[in-house]
């Protein structure tokens, strides 16, 4: 089933076309990456899907429903979770309360004036935190955590209302290399377990080629290539504009690694498609 269907997306700022005629689809349970050099239009593209920007042309459909130009909070209600380049959490709340907020919002209890917020949806929040490995720190203040942990909390918040689709803008930006791998492995694990789809942008080619099922390559707003990691790696134009040197090496390394060690996983993936 196609969770996200983007077609003919276009956005110009002033005279500058940031995204031009971009189309792609994300299937259920798929990890879909948008990559490209700086200024390629990744974030613009991303924000049009998430609702932060309204496209000039084209459409965004979520599970068949047109969500083009809807406000982010409506898009969230339709089942889209989101994390940000710089983690956005509620710094003065505990880890558990951060996730509880998402539940409160999901269940429409935000305007309750009398019950104690700490007690509502606590079990559910702890369960989600358990999945991201943060249950042990549930009572700590979120703003005081290490950055990697904050990212996990953000992931937990985004997962709380069991979204169909997770939008992750540079999920590993600002993290140490080790943390990056861990976070993405965690994300990939959860995604495959629960059948959520993920659309993400990423700079780190190791991360991309280690986890993405499909890739979209953008260059100056133009859609250069779409396909599996292997297809993209082999695309001549992609190689020319983007995957020179280090990028190509990373791609090769990670694709080989996946082929070697994760056969059962690959098969499961294949069935899901």
């Amino acid at each position: 089933m196609t969770v996200l269907d983007v077609s003919g997306l276009r956005k110009a700022f002033g005279g500058l076309t940031a995204v031009d005629e971009v189309s792609f689809g994300v299937e259920a349970g798929q990890l879909f990456a948008i990559i490209g050099p700086n200024g390629a239009g990744k974030t613009t593209c991303f924000n049009m899907v998430g609702g932060q920007l309204r496209p000039d042309r084209g459409s965004v459909r979520l599970a068949g429903r047109d969500i083009t130009g809807e406000a982010p909070r409506r898009i969230w209600r339709l089942g889209v979770g989101r994390t940000f380049q710089v983690a956005a959490t509620f710094g003065s709340m505990t880890v558990a309360e951060n996730v509880q907020m998402a539940f409160l919002s999901h269940h429409g209890r935000l305007r309750a004036l009398l019950p104690s917020a700490r007690r509502l949806y606590r079990e559910q929040a702890l369960a989600v935190l358990e999945r991201v490995g943060m249950a042990g720190q549930a009572e700590r203040q979120c703003g005081l955590l290490a950055y990697g942990d904050i990212k996990r909390v953000e992931l937990a918040i985004a997962l709380a209302h069991q979204p169909k689709l997770l939008l992750m803008d540079e999920p590993t930006a600002g993290m140490a290399p080790r943390e990056r791998i861990e976070l993405m492995a965690l994300t990939a694990g959860i995604v495959r377990e629960s059948g959520i789809s993920v659309l993400f942008t990423e700079h780190d080619m190791d991360v991309v080629f280690a986890h993405a099922d499909r890739l979209l390559v953008l260059d100056r707003g133009r859609q250069v290539a779409t396909g599996t990691p292997a297809e993209v790696r082999d695309d001549a134009e992609v190689q020319r504009i983007y995957l020179g040197g280090a990028g190509a090496e990373a791609a090769a390394r990670q694709i080989e690694a996946r082929a070697g060690e994760q056969l059962p996983g690959e098969r499961a993936e294949g069935e899901a498609r």
Partner: peptide, 25 residues
């Protein structure tokens, strides 16, 4: 009310309007 979801929602808005928007608030 400060301890209730409504108070928490206001605090959430103070801490991160961006995150609020992204969880449907």
């Amino acid at each position: 009310a400060s301890y209730a979801p409504f108070g928490y929602t206001l605090r959430a808005g103070r801490d991160s309007p961006l995150r609020c928007d992204a969880i449907g608030i």
